[in-house]
Design a protein around this nucleic acid. Structure first.
Lengths: 139, 139
DNA sequence: GACATATACTTGCGCGATCAAGTTTATATG
DNA sequence: CATATAAACTTGATCGCGCAAGTATATGTC
């Protein structure tokens, strides 16, 4: 066995953990008819409290622009989000949460925080805060 | 704005971080012709130093059994891994790294640890160790 | 003001992964 | 021992997402 770098181990464990947590969170969210990424988009729109461009969402989610386009399509069809033009830059198509989208988010949030606290029950509050803080240095 | 649970934030940030890191790591690994998950499988087989069943790999990777089947197929075709029967349980098809697979892993590892240390350069050694330790409590 | 380059998407194609269903082998129960 | 149930895969259909290429608009340069 060779010596292994801690950073390699970190990247691997982070990927494995995310795969597990995301899957379980997705399962819980599926009863509300939304995916984890859709939930994260709603969360972002609520938290930032502004309209977001598709590129902004793509960077935030760490996915491609085309992925965002395809993801938002059904969300707009079902009325969760609404699109608006940016008058300053007509290339952009801004996204905002509709009122029914906000209601859906609030309903879903309680489900989500339940599953999230189940999934992280092996960590103390302060350990979780520390993790989120360190994640911030990498994002 | 409502009060948000730290565990929700943790699950979201973890997913976002993994999306970013995985994508960058995948890009680097693609020059060796392998995906991140393939690298993780090789890493697992080397670290555990034993043959693994497909179910075991699926649980470790946090993916479905069918996903593992499909993922291993080309790896076996190109000779990275070999399959062996489990004599105690003939339902199982055990996976082990071939010698050329081991060589590929060693080559790839240096690439991987380089990109990993780039990606985590904002964290100290001990912070990374702490993170890996806390990840262990959740996996 | 014209032209080149960059940005913000959108669309076609392909890959990787999931789910549901099917097959084979193991295990538990009467 | 027979039957039922579970476990370990495999396969078909499908979906989400990325990449490459195309379009429309903005910006920078001569």
């Amino acid at each position: 066995m060779s010596i292994e770098s801690i950073s390699s181990l970190f990247v691997i464990k982070n990927a494995l953990l995310a795969a597990r947590l995301s899957k379980k969170a997705s399962n819980r969210l599926s009863v509300h008819g939304i995916s984890l990424n859709e939930y994260i988009v709603m969360h972002y729109l609520v938290s930032s409290n502004k309209e977001a461009s598709r590129i902004e969402l793509a960077e935030y989610l760490g996915m491609s622009a085309s992925g965002v386009t395809r993801m938002l399509l059904p969300m707009e069809k079902t009325g969760i989000i609404e699109s608006a033009r940016n008058l300053r830059d007509s290339r952009q198509s801004l996204v905002k949460l509709s009122t029914s989208g906000l209601r859906l988010f609030e309903d879903t949030s309680t489900s989500f925080s339940h599953i999230a606290s189940e999934l992280t029950s092996n960590l103390s509050q302060s350990q979780q805060e520390r993790l989120v803080e360190l994640f911030g240095k990498l994002i």
